[in-house]
Design a binder for these strands. Structure first.
Lengths: 220, 220
DNA sequence: TCATTATTCAAGTATTTACTTGAATAATTG
DNA sequence: CAATTATTCAAGTAAATACTTGAATAATGA
């Protein structure tokens, strides 16, 4: 009886540590980062994270074994995606604790998200303003990422064609831009360009998933 | 410019993966589990997690390097503790995702927290009732754990002397017992004993930290 | 059916890991 | 000052890890 419980306890900690270990390699974290914005084939992932295809495939298998990722066949290629949105949450929590504990990460964060590009409003207030139509929320990621999953009320903004995008915006409303999260710079340039053209523009550090789940239990 | 950002990105992912790796060993997770309930000396920890002193010390150093744990000297011995409550949050998040992703962990959970011992009330409602004085919240961990950090309104219940403890309780109010969280059984026996004696008693799966931070952003 | 394509597998290597044992350190007490 | 105590360090070992290269597989399209 007590022995069986002890055995179970061992299993518990070994399962939990398996999951943690799955997150314990830079390459795999980058995979999760990519997959939290889009599903993707091995070759594509491999290019995005800058590792060989074989190596990427092996990392993916480790993630799959830990249950963080799943595959679906589509013809000759395979599409990998996160098994669950909660995977993003653990990843965000890891970022959060990193930001608290590691000075390296603190300085990295202000490099990626320069304070002068950020709004002083709380995220709640931003979301509220967007909901009321008093502010414009733009998603500057690739179109396919936007189509897979974006934040409520967000519109897609073509970051390589700012001039073309202007017609989507009102100069009377502040514009809030988001991309792939804290360690992504896509939104920075757009904000700078918009400010040059007289818009009141800010960059959000949050990614689509965080903006979507606001109001429910989590934000990071 | 772009190169420097890339270098920073590499550092970001390697720092984050260092933190995840620090959680990637059963022994270290158990250390964190212990430390989320009490600060502790190496020898004590070593006994609790069932590893040699030298090995425990080495694990602690890894945790320290990752910034999850800190030491303070007290005379001839050293006291290790978590650097930050947020460490508990990551650990809880890991548990949460484990519960979602791993069947092993699901069955373990019902072994540790048998459904028949649990209340049907939501945790919010339990906390509300406790706050209003309509229910009794008991902490059945060791006294020193209780003294270091317990939940609001909780009283310490001596789990080895249930009979003695009875005078702390009212038979008219439901009793909610908590211990060290999901993978701890201390509260089970107390609940069983209390029920035998005619009390309406339930076991909570949450640990002190979770009961304390309810109302703010998190619960798991 | 054969070539192409995307992915996985197998084998090899260098590095890191978790652990052991036993000695070294450093604060405390007799 | 010597003995005790709690902890860390150093060295060694077996296993696991992240990567490489090149071959194997299996679906698709000519």
């Amino acid at each position: 009886m007590k022995d069986s419980l002890n055995a179970t306890k061992e299993k518990v900690y070994s399962s939990l540590s398996d999951i943690a270990s799955a997150l314990g390699a830079p390459a795999r974290l980058r995979i999760i980062q990519v997959l939290s914005n889009r599903s993707s084939a091995v070759e594509d992932l491999s290019a995005r994270i800058g590792e060989s295809v074989a190596n990427t495939s092996q990392h993916l298998q480790k993630l799959k074994k830990a249950g963080l990722v799943r595959v679906s066949r589509s013809g000759v290629s395979r599409t990998y995606s996160l098994t669950n949105k909660n995977v993003i949450d653990v990843f965000l929590d890891l970022q959060k604790i990193g930001a608290i504990l590691s000075p390296d990460l603190q300085s990295a964060e202000s490099e990626f998200c320069p304070p002068e590009l950020q709004s002083k409003l709380s995220l709640q207030d931003v979301v509220k303003a967007v909901r009321k139509g008093e502010a414009t929320l733009i998603d500057v990621r690739d179109l396919d990422e936007f189509e897979t999953n974006t934040a409520p009320h967000a519109i897609h903004f073509p970051r390589d064609e700012v001039t073309k995008g202007l017609k989507l915006l009102s100069k009377k409303k502040p514009v809030f831009a988001f991309c792939r999260g804290r360690y992504c710079i896509l939104a920075n340039d757009v904000v700078v360009q918009l400010r040059k053209r007289g818009y009141e523009a800010y960059r959000l550090r949050e990614m689509a998933h965080q903006l979507s789940t606001l109001g429910s239990s989590k934000e990071a």
